[in-house]
């Protein structure tokens, strides 16, 4: 391209431009001129040391790397999460599967709720705690994360990986379930009554994972929950009252389960490391 001006920066100006000492006006003029003038670009080459060139290249790579990362990862970094934690959280396909699972289940529940049939609304509330339970297990089960064996042989703490993924999926799926449940006609108290049992069940899945596979742990917790719903429902009324499990005694039982699960998880957390002796 032919430069539109007859001005060419001299050697001193070029050196000042390279050294970042040219000042804003001269730097802008030089940069605009260099884009158009092949002769001056050639004259610039000797002024740029290999070290300087490597720094410019590294800076460019940094910017390209940052731009390549998914927007969710960039958001997590802005929220203060470290690079390793953000990458571990989002890397595994199991995370995407778990989230898709959560979204799919939440949408299904929402569709049920949209029917506004009281029986269907009851069913939605009964099954709502199971959504985060299943999604949590899917986020770190070895059958979903194919590289888990490789990950286990690195210094990154397994417990941290599990808690990060379980926490993220639990929060996301719980939020989705809240949105779905809010479509119900039973008011705020009815809508949030399942949150405490859901949290207790999530921690129970993590605690059970210190003994058995995450999928098995989720199965045990789900079966336990449905048994509790059935027992509480038939204990109070006939026909079955599926929401009896959410009354005060049910909430207290959830607190007790949460306490036990936390103690078990803390005491046996070393078992989550596959290399740890049993």
């Amino acid at each position: 391209m032919t430069p539109r001006t007859v001005w060419h920066p001299d050697a001193t100006a070029l050196q000042a431009y390279v050294d970042d000492e040219a000042g804003a006006a001269l730097a802008a003029s030089t940069e605009a001129h260099l884009l158009a003038c092949h002769t001056c670009r050639l004259a610039l080459v000797p002024a740029v040391t290999p070290t300087r060139l490597a720094l410019v290249r590294a800076d460019l790579d940094d910017r390209l790397d940052a731009a390549e990362r998914p927007w969710v990862e960039r958001c997590l970094r802005r929220l203060g999460l470290g690079e390793a934690d953000a990458r571990v959280l989002l890397a595994a396909p199991s995370m995407r599967r778990a989230w898709w699972l959560a979204v799919g289940l939440a949408l299904s529940l929402g569709l049920v709720a949209a029917g506004q049939d009281p029986a269907q609304a009851d069913a939605l509330l009964v099954f709502a705690p199971l959504l985060p339970v299943v999604a949590t297990a899917a986020s770190y089960a070895p059958r979903f994360d194919t590289a888990l064996a490789l990950t286990a042989a690195t210094p990154y703490p397994t417990m941290r990986l599990l808690l990060l993924r379980a926490g993220a999926v639990a929060v996301a799926s719980t939020a989705l379930a809240v949105v779905a449940a809010s479509a119900l006609p039973m008011g705020l108290a009815g809508t949030v009554s399942w949150l405490l049992p859901a949290v207790a069940l999530i921690v129970a899945v993590l605690a059970l994972s210190t003994w058995v596979d995450a999928g098995v742990a989720a199965g045990i917790c789900s079966a336990g929950w449905l048994t509790a719903v059935w027992t509480a429902g038939y204990g109070r009324a006939r026909p079955l009252d599926p929401l009896a499990v959410y009354d005060v005694s049910g909430q207290l039982a959830s607190i007790a389960l949460l306490g036990v699960a936390v103690v078990v998880l803390v005491r046996h957390r070393h078992r989550l490391d596959p290399g740890s002796p049993a």
């Binding site: 940094d62 390793a84 571990v88 690195t154 990154y156």
Partner: peptide
Amino acid sequence: YVAILKEHTDRR
């Protein structure tokens, strides 16, 4: 990704 897990924290 594996390098991050292996504590290679300096990006460059």
